[in-house]
């Protein structure tokens, strides 16, 4: 089952990569460097999915006290941190040639960095506790606070980078994006999600084995 998922993810990644370099057109303004987008955007979407699962696993554990929920949380948190790191690094590499800087304290960059740090802390905490039940309890508490904190972090950084000035608010509207580019993004998003699910299954299985060895 997990093996099949792995092959499916690999296949999707190959197709995604092919689409990113073969099918998607050279972007009109940015040129080929825009192809980093097919890595950057799927990575961040996958990271959001991962952290939502950490939250679900944390809540589930506190309610039911079943270690299965805790395995879900840790199995999602590890790849979540990995994908967040990839998001930051790929975004940075994309930013240098286009905006002219590796890093800027922009609202979205900053809140992604904070997200990364919060869940690195979460994983560090897990590493410091050996008993599965105690580890699961502490991690769940930190996971719940981390999730509840995300909107607050978002608004604090958003306002922090704002200059106050009355201005007309322009309503949001869908951004124009060429169809082949959107399609390539979609394919890569699916591929990353499959890869994440594969990692999730493998990591959860490892957590299960560790518990059975310890107990």
């Amino acid at each position: 089952m997990t093996r099949a998922l792995g092959w499916l993810a690999a296949l999707a990644l190959v197709i995604g990569l092919g689409a990113a370099f073969g099918y998607a057109p050279r972007e009109a303004v940015q040129g080929n460097v825009q192809r980093i987008m097919y890595l950057h955007v799927p990575a961040v979407l996958t990271a959001y999915l991962a952290f939502a699962l950490v939250f679900a696993g944390s809540l589930g554990y506190l309610f039911t006290r079943r270690l299965g929920w805790d395995r879900l949380a840790v199995a999602a948190a590890e790849p979540g941190v990995l994908f967040t790191g990839l998001t930051i690094v790929s975004g940075s590499i994309w930013g240098k040639p286009t905006w002219g800087t590796w890093w800027t304290w922009d609202a979205r960059l900053t809140s992604t960095a904070v997200l990364f740090l919060v869940y690195v802390g979460y994983l560090l905490l897990r590493g410091m506790v050996d008993e599965p039940d105690r580890r699961a309890r502490y991690a769940a508490v930190v996971g719940i606070l981390g999730a509840a904190n995300i909107p607050i972090v978002h608004f604090s950084v958003k306002w922090w980078r704002a200059l106050h000035q009355p201005s007309t608010i322009l309503g949001p509207e869908p951004s124009p994006i060429a169809a082949p580019i959107a399609l390539t993004l979609l394919v890569n998003w699916i591929a990353f999600t499959l890869l994440f699910l594969y990692f999730l299954a493998r990591r959860a299985e490892i957590a299960r084995l560790e518990e059975s060895h310890a107990g």
């Binding site: 802390g121 979460y122 560090l124 410091m128 606070l145």
Partner: peptide
């Protein structure tokens, strides 16, 4: 809350700020 958690784990002096500071970004900014 985090103090109660880290009081019972290894490397608590290190872990406490590592957990607390990222969570406190909004409070610090505000």
């Amino acid at each position: 809350l985090f103090g109660a958690i880290t009081a019972q784990v290894r490397a608590r002096e290190l872990l406490f700020p590592v957990l607390l500071l990222p969570a406190q970004v909004p409070v610090l900014l505000g």
